[in-house]
Simulated scan of single mutants.
Amino acid sequence: MEKYSQFRDRGSGIAPFFPVLSQPAGLYMPVHIFLFLIKLPLLITISTTYFLFLQWFPLGSLLKKAILWLILGIPGIWWIDLQIDGVKKGSLAKKHEGRVPEPGNVIASSFTSPIDSLYLAAIFDPIFTVSYPHTRQVQYISLFGAIFRALSKPREYPPKGAKMTDLRTLVAEHPTRVIVVFPECTTTNGKGIMPFSPSLLTAPPQTKIFPISLRYSPPDVTTPIPGLYWAFFWNLLSQPTHCIRVRIAEVVYNTSKPSDTTAEKKEKYLSNFMDTLGEDSATTSSTDTLTSLNDQTAEVNADERRVLDKVGEALARLGRVKRVGLTLRDKLAFVEAWSKRR
């Protein structure tokens, strides 16, 4: 692993992109194979039936959540260790008001595994979004899209033709739903918190933002390397049980005030672009235009940085990890290097 030393955080030495190795099965290998062969067809059958057919029927939120819990139960995800800041164990029913996400709130979740989205859907029935490091806007995706994205190659910029919006608009249009944001923009192995996208800064000031940390035991179901589908399913289905450790932090509000310079730059850039749109010398592609505009709107001031730092520190504290300086661009470079090795 020394050849990948450049993908370790310089301050802490943490490597958030390395895959987590499974414990050797040893004499229990026949048992693991048996469990895998029993669980795989069940998981495929129920998941396919739900995502292709049942999710489009008006089954109601409770029935859909029950099916999702069944999907979680097949791999043996039975034990949920839940802790909430400011609430003692066993007293959640008495002091839950304002301590857990409710409709109209935003969840800023850690992003380590496809199970993240499945668990959040089974609990909150939320709207899932995709964040990008160079824009404040988000992409609205389905539950299946969120699950698939945890196994896919990360993107630094939105795909061409993607419908982008912001959290303020989503909260206004869906007041009865929780909004889920993965501010790290890509998956890690759970050993560090990456720098955040500025997408959380579009949340309305009165909207509650709940940092939620999800950790797994054993941790080999994390998917920091994209494309390893069979390795993920083997680790998920060959084990008897899995545990999810859920930590919910206290509410964070977007108390920042965006600087006028960002809006001025955006307006000036659009004006200049429209003026030169008809000239032959204007050969800038639509992709380059979007990239430049996104880079400008992603700039944050000191006040906005404090809000992002507060959420990041909460996730790091909940997960008992440290924040790292490695970015999504470093993740892309690591994936390319790892692919060449394989």
Rank of each mutant, 00 (worst) to 15 (best):
L68G: 05
E102A: 08
F36V: 03
V31Q: 05
T45G: 12
I77E: 07
I44C: 14
P75M: 03
I80H: 12
E97N: 13
G104L: 01
N105A: 11
P41F: 04
K39S: 03
F36G: 03
P30S: 07
Y50M: 11
H32G: 10
S61F: 03
I44Q: 08
K88G: 14
L37D: 01
L63A: 09
P30G: 10
K95S: 07
F34D: 03
A66M: 04
L68D: 05
I74C: 03
M29Q: 09
F53L: 15
L70V: 15
A66C: 06
G73P: 01
L70S: 15
P101Y: 05
L40N: 08
L72N: 09
K39I: 03
S47D: 02
N105P: 09
L35F: 08
P75Q: 05
S91C: 01
Q55T: 13
N105L: 07
I38T: 10
F57R: 06
L52V: 06
N105D: 15
P103Q: 00
K88M: 11
T49K: 10
D81Q: 14
W69R: 15
T49E: 04
A93T: 06
V31R: 12
L59V: 00
S91W: 14
Y28C: 13
L54H: 00
I67M: 05
G90M: 05
L63F: 10
S91T: 08
L92Y: 04
I38M: 13
I38N: 06
